[in-house]
């Protein structure tokens, strides 16, 4: 592992519930994020990307969740922090922005009050100082007339403004790591790109390390240095953005990229889709979880555990058929 790694996840397993109803949301995720790097976790709903992200702050209800493996963030062993050390860690070292800020902000406190509360909680400074800092944050995330907006309640702001306020709240205590849980999904397209540009700019000026969860490949390409593709609780392929976009080697990544509209589709032309549905996480099949939907699958794919195959520097895919997956599908079947 790299010396510069600020986030190191090793063999993370997250199981909700127990017994036969146990849902294995994350099955052995290992991920390394270097300081100042942005990594995008992409995948469809239920692929375990948000669960992985929330594990970094240990936000899952401890009673119903069992977490195995190890998570190190900026030198903190997250899974063994005491509860008071954990709350010091949250927001101060590592903070999070959410998909829908209208739900993630307390509706009966003004946005400014929530930012001030966070600053006072971690920095222990006076209210006047915290207020000054909050104002500077609002200017930093480019909210117009910041004094007035600080006194506004979440429901009084527009969607884009709320997400900016949420980012200001997350940056309130100068964290080193920012976790973004689908921060643009709830916004309309023109606002999405503004928020992505803002995140990229903040990442550069503040030297943040960002883990960005999304199911929007376009958004991932816009902000990320590296992409990790998740399916059924595992990272199935990981590499830098260029490699993943140009030469994906896992059949799932390939199918995902093909199911996007490139530029314009001709009238009447069907958009490529992935047949079947994602597996039930309570009843995962043996072998590769994607095999039932995979055009390249062979019998060998349906047993044992699939190891990560290294395909060059910082590129890997969890697939037994990487020898043929770079070829178009028809040729591979003949081979």
């Amino acid at each position: 592992m790299s010396q510069d790694a600020i986030i190191e996840i090793k063999d993370l397993e997250v199981v909700f519930g127990s017994g036969s109803a146990a849902v294995r949301a994350v099955n052995g995720v290992s991920l390394c994020v270097e300081r100042g790097q942005t990594v995008a976790l992409i995948g469809e709903s239920g692929s375990g990307k948000s669960v992985t992200l929330r594990s970094l702050l240990r936000l899952h209800a401890p009673k119903r969740t069992s977490i195995k493996g190890s998570i190190r963030v900026a030198g903190h062993d997250v899974l063994s922090l005491s509860s008071s050390a954990l709350s010091d860690f949250r927001g101060e070292v590592c903070s999070m922005i959410f998909q829908e800020p209208l739900l993630a902000l307390d509706p009966v406190y003004s946005v400014g009050d929530q930012i001030i509360e966070s600053i006072q909680r971690h920095k222990g400074c006076s209210r006047a100082e915290a207020n000054k800092k909050a104002l500077a944050l609002f200017e930093r995330v480019k909210i117009p007339s910041p004094e007035r907006r600080l006194a506004a309640y979440p429901h009084e702001m527009s969607g884009g403004m709320r997400q900016r306020a949420m980012i200001a709240l997350a940056l309130a205590c100068d964290p080193q790591v920012l976790l973004a849980d689908e921060p643009t999904t709830a916004l309309d397209a023109t606002v999405q790109i503004q928020i992505l540009l803002l995140l990229r700019e903040l990442q550069k000026t503040l030297g943040l390390s960002i883990v960005f969860v999304t199911h929007d490949i376009g958004a991932a390409v816009e902000v990320a240095d590296r992409i990790a593709v998740m399916y059924a609780g595992q990272i199935v392929e990981e590499g830098d953005v260029r490699t993943i976009m140009r030469a994906p080697r896992h059949p799932y990544t390939k199918a995902l990229l093909q199911s996007r509209a490139h530029g314009s589709l001709d009238r009447g032309q069907r958009l490529a889709t992935i047949p079947g549905a994602p597996p039930d996480l309570a009843k995962l099949p043996p072998g590769c979880a994607f095999a039932p939907r995979c055009a390249y699958a062979q019998d060998a794919c349906r047993e044992g555990t699939i190891a990560l195959v290294s395909l060059g520097e910082s590129h890997g895919a969890r697939c037994r058929r990487t020898d043929v997956t770079h070829l178009p599908h028809t040729e591979s079947v003949e081979a």
Binding site: R54, L57, L59, S84, S87, D88, F89, R90, G91, E92, S95, M96, F98, E100, L103, A104, L105, D106, P107, Q114, E117, S118, R121, H122, L169, A170, A172, C173
Partner: peptide, 13 residues
């Protein structure tokens, strides 16, 4: 509510 997770994530005890 989601904001309870939000409050925990910002480090409130």
């Amino acid at each position: 509510q989601e904001f309870i997770i939000g409050l925990r994530a910002m480090g409130l005890t």
